[in-house]
Design a protein around this nucleic acid. Structure first.
Lengths: 379, 379
DNA sequence: GGGCGGTGGGAAAACGTTCTCCCACGACTT
DNA sequence: AAGTCGTGGGAGAACGTTTTCCCACCGCCC
């Protein structure tokens, strides 16, 4: 009772009275085959419980139908949702995912990428640890195999990139604050050297200046601990006027800040409002729930895979493309005094979906998230 | 500059003036080789940038050095930390991880397992979706390849299991509550049919009865939404006396409950205390931070890999083993009125580390094939 | 000086597919 | 009636390793 344990093509061939070639043709559909033989083969395969050996197939066809997914830190709560969508999209296409976690270290990242390449992955999806220190490893990998960067860039011209439009997201936040009459905002973000940190920071500076708000930044890292520390610094010391809005670089910072504000007895959203970025699951669990910028995770995954497969189909490289996807403002209790159900999430969506004008040599704007006009993209 | 792109053993052989066999022997160390030839081979390999093709290696040696990791839902915030530890431990052993997400559906789970087996994974690590509906797929897979269950069981005698000792964890919670003089607890848990849900529920019932507390259960699922709903039910309706302690089946439930309690103006931990289970990251971010039972995630990963490799080494099957690891109570503000720093996490650890009784071999015993004797929850 | 272990190395057979040739045969064209 | 397709099928060469043979050589002991 161990069907399919070690049944090979040869066994099926013998059992069906055909040759190995014929069996392969029937089962992989690589060439039409006579109806009669086809039936015999299929019967035999079924009866013996034949399962094609993907390793052998990969060796011969030079394609493993496997992609490597390289993350800086899977414990960052933004990534699980991304991983989920990516695995599902790829799985639909018959591809498996080799996962690698880098512990936020560029050295580890380089090693993992190397290991994945040795395993002959067909392509790589990488969220680089650092904009600069990841560059050489990423560039080298991109020379060997199709590679798409996710969420964070790695310098221009290195590889395709799919990411949320951080600038647009920050603008949504600032518009929202302006509409609520907040005039003394402070940005609590990360001085990290990954591109998301830099873009959000820059977008805040530009946007705040446009609103006539005083430029005020507190920079640490993307952690809840830093959110707490930043609040301590802003409230305990005499460091200028008390902010009436804390614009946080991501949700972890916002959650930490919120926790400390409560402990200090500062009313949110009355005395100060707080916003986050990413819309990680716990953002909705805090009290008050955090107003934040939701990333279009599903679209990011779909778009990334689309780019990947284009490159797979046509190794003759396109120029590097950048796709920026529009985020969505999710207004919750941390900026809205009103009663928020806090059940189904009273999300509001004043922003348009679809890709926004980004950088890059004209992304295929028209057909991004849903339209399936994909692949043909000339060349 | 494209070194190492397609360099094969043959190329190295030619360049070093040796035969393919010799090169293979030098590089894989499968047999001693003359010092002179070895040097020439290594030089040539280095110079050409040779990288062994793992696919070919796998085909010939019948081992891919790859394990499949099957999760019910990677977006469940408990899993990322587990995935992290597993990938690190396996990576140290030169093994890669093929990740599969099941969307909490047993059918999908079966399909993913099948796909991983077709890819010739050396072994499987599975957190089963459901104790019963996952059984046939898991049992079938366990017949083909070494398989270790994680976190949740799947019926007795199916496969090795490594999990936290849920019973001990619940006992820690109940002791803590008793020490704080709480006498009207209520359990908010899941009626799901995975073993963790069942074990925690059963442990609560037994433990609460032993303390003389009235048996009171509210069962839904392992989500924050259910935590909120349960609180509504307990506070809004006239359904018995108001609980002075909410023992939640996991942290998500606790976070949802906490959020609703605050909205209702119920003081925590004054009027009622709240506990969780798992110690997921946001448990420390809530306010008050949640007292919870921390799973020894690192140990679970190490132990699981140890079991896996034992089976890999010796296909002559041991009997099924179950390893239960001791959890740790983490006391935070949701049960302690005192001032909790909420910075570095004022964790307390009144429980002993290491595996607990009830089952299983000592963690360090190299090859004690001690009998499986899984916990009572297993039918 | 003729066996005889031990050592270092090469040729070639796997591993289980896919894919390129090549052949046989019938049905058309000329 | 002789070519020329098109179609269905088989033999066998890849793919890049590991591993099993087998040979040549060296020094050693009887």
């Amino acid at each position: 009772m161990n069907p399919g344990s070690d049944v090979t093509l040869r066994d099926v061939a013998r059992a069906s009275g055909c040759s190995v070639s014929t069996v392969s043709r029937v089962l992989s559909g690589s060439r039409p085959v006579g109806a009669d033989a086809a039936r015999r083969v299929r019967e035999a395969a079924e009866r013996l419980g034949y399962r094609p050996n993907q390793v052998a197939r990969a060796l011969r066809s030079r394609s493993t139908a496997t992609v490597g997914l390289v993350l800086p830190q899977i414990t960052n709560p933004f990534y699980p949702a991304l991983v989920r969508e990516l695995t599902h999209v790829l799985d639909e296409r018959g591809r498996a995912v080799l996962l690698a976690d880098c512990d936020d270290d560029p050295g580890t990242e380089a090693a993992r990428i190397e290991a994945l390449l040795a395993r002959q992955v067909d392509a790589l999806l990488v969220v680089p640890v650092d904009e600069e220190r990841s560059r050489t490893a990423v560039a080298a990998a991109a020379g060997r195999v199709p590679l798409v960067l996710l969420d964070r860039s790695c310098g221009p011209g290195i590889a395709d990139l799919v990411a949320v439009d951080n600038t647009a997201g920050m603008a949504l936040v600032l518009d929202h604050l302006a509409a609520r009459g907040r005039t003394r905002p402070c940005y609590i973000g990360a001085d990290g050297t990954n591109s998301a940190a830099a873009e959000r920071r820059a977008a805040y500076e530009v946007g705040a200046a446009a609103l006539g708000a005083p430029p005020r930044l507190a920079l640490g890292d993307f952690s809840a601990a830093w959110g707490r520390a930043a609040v301590d610094r802003l409230w305990n010391r005499e460091s200028g006027p008390e902010p009436d809005a804390l614009v946080c670089g991501n949700d972890l910072i916002a959650l930490g800040a919120l926790q400390r504000l409560r402990q200090l007895g500062v009313d949110v959203p009355g005395r100060t409002v707080v916003t986050g970025f990413d819309d990680i699951p716990p953002a909705d669990l805090a009290d008050p729930a955090v107003t934040t910028v939701r990333q279009p995770v599903r679209d990011i995954a779909v778009e990334a895979v689309r780019l990947l497969e284009q490159r797979l189909d046509d190794p003759a490289a396109f120029p590097c493309r950048t796709v920026r996807l529009a985020p969505q403002l999710v207004i919750r209790a941390s900026t809205e005094p009103g009663d928020h159900p806090a059940h189904g999430t009273g999300d509001t969506a004043p922003s348009a979906p679809g890709p926004t004008g980004g950088t890059a040599p004209a992304p295929r704007s028209p057909d991004s998230p849903s339209a399936s006009h994909s692949s043909k993209a000339a060349q």
